[in-house]
Every structure is written in structure tokens, then in C-alpha cells.
Amino acid sequence: MTAETMQGYNYAYLDEQTKAMIRRAILKAVAIPGHQVPFGSREMPLPYGWGTGGIQITASIIGPLDVLKVIDQGSDDTTNAVSIRSFFARTAGVKTTTATEEATVIQTRHRIPEAPLTDGQIIVYQVPIPEPLRFMEPSESETRTMHALEEYGVMHVKLYEDIAEHGRIAKSYDYPVRVQSRYVMAPSPIPKFDNPKMHDSPALQLFGAGREKRIYAIPPHTRVESLDFEDHPFEIQKWDEACAICGARDSFLDEILTDDRGGRMFVCSDSDHCARRVREDC
């Protein structure tokens, strides 16, 4: 621990019993890939929707030797990312980084980094709505039964509606997946561009929903398939433009308005990836 570590709080903010409880939920989640495990979510010193689920998972698994990276919409320097990073720097005294390959724990909101994750890394997703069946079925007891009995027909009803209305599957984020051919899972609001990265990833993927009190997981090297139709296969987003800063053509681009006369530019959403490409080119 560093000298700046806060006094008067337990290591990584949560008390040890809470962390043990959350770790038990995580173990169960890893044992049943894609299954939502209820846990006793605690009040955290930030509002629901700001990552209370992810932050509790990170607090429960982070050790003094870990190196933490936090991203929000792919960026290391947005408010949410900066706050959570400094929260753990102060309560756990861990080293933080913005470099994907240096991190052992990556907490994320809305993106998976462009740099491939590696063996031994853990990525923690912040999840607002963990139940993929929720928009079709409001009853919790019914959705649990549907998961238990693998009744997932309604997921395709939703995709059918998309095609009927828009001529294609218009869902572009939180795109539902089937984990290890068993559970249908909401991958949190990452763009569907990132869905293929979840498949067979060497990293451990943990998902935490603080308000909804659910934890779920994808263990390393697990099959993750995006739902689709035979005649409307799953596709990821593509751009005609390249990143205006680094020139990348294979990364997820954000559209940024630069003035009020229609000026716009496309740049990488993953700020670490973009900065590295600029550094290495020059």
C-alpha cells in the first residue's frame, strides 16, 4: 500500500465478510457460465447506474499487487473512469494504469478494449439491466423459469420485430448472446462490435449489476454466440471512415461533432488503443 491510502476504511472499501460473500457469488457464477447469481448488493458511495455492481466485484477481487485500468465508453479519462480509478488507488492503494496490457483487472462500462485480452486478466463489466428476457417478460419468477427450462423463443421474437420494423436487426448494443449453448445473457451495453471479443477469450469476464443485485460470468475460453436468424446473420458495425487521429480502420469509432455547421470527425473510442498507435507511428 502507498502512503496515500485512506485510513479508517477497510482494504478496498468493503468489509471482509461482504467481499467473501461476493466472491462466493462470483465462484458460483463462474461455475455456471451466463447464469445470473443473486448477491447482497451493498450501498456504495456513488449512485446506482455509475457502476456500483462493477465496483463491488472489483473491490472483492483486487489484491495489493493488482494493476487496475478503468474505462468508460472506451476512454480512460472520463469522469466515471477517473473517479473509480482514484477510488481504488485511495482505498486499496493499488497501482493504476491506462495501458490495457499492463492491467490485471479492467473495470469497464460500455466497451471491451481493442487490444486482445490475455491469459490471467480479469475484465469487470458494469451492468444496468442483467436480465435479457426482461423487455419481453416483466415477471421475475417467469424469467427465472424460462432460464431454467431454456425457453428462449421470445429472444428471437424481439429480433424478428427488429427486422420487421427496420429490415435488419437494428439492436446495436447489449446484443444478447448464448453462453456455452446454454444460458442467454445480456452482455451489458457494450456495442455489438465487441460481442465477438467475448467468444473464447483467454480472460475471465465478470459482470456486476448493483441495483439489480446480480453477478454473472464467462470463464476463459467459453463459447459465446450472438443470437441471429439464418437469413439475417449477426453482423458488427462497420465504418466508411478511418480514425481521424490514428487512422485505424478496424476499431470502434465515435462520431464527434466539431462545430454547429455539420462538421464532424470519427475517432477511436478506445483512447489507449488510439494513443498507442499514434506513439508507435511517430
Binding site: 421470445v154 428471437h156 424478428y160 436468424f229 437469413d231
Partner: peptide, 14 residues
């Protein structure tokens, strides 16, 4: 109309 068919595993939109 299609829901029961999709529940049975029909996966061809057309």
C-alpha cells in the same frame, strides 16, 4: 404468430 415456432427453434426469418 411466429412466437411458438421460434420457441421450437425456427431460425429463418423469411
Amino acid at each position: 404468430i411466429g412466437e411458438r415456432l421460434m420457441a421450437l427453434g425456427h431460425r429463418h426469418y423469411g
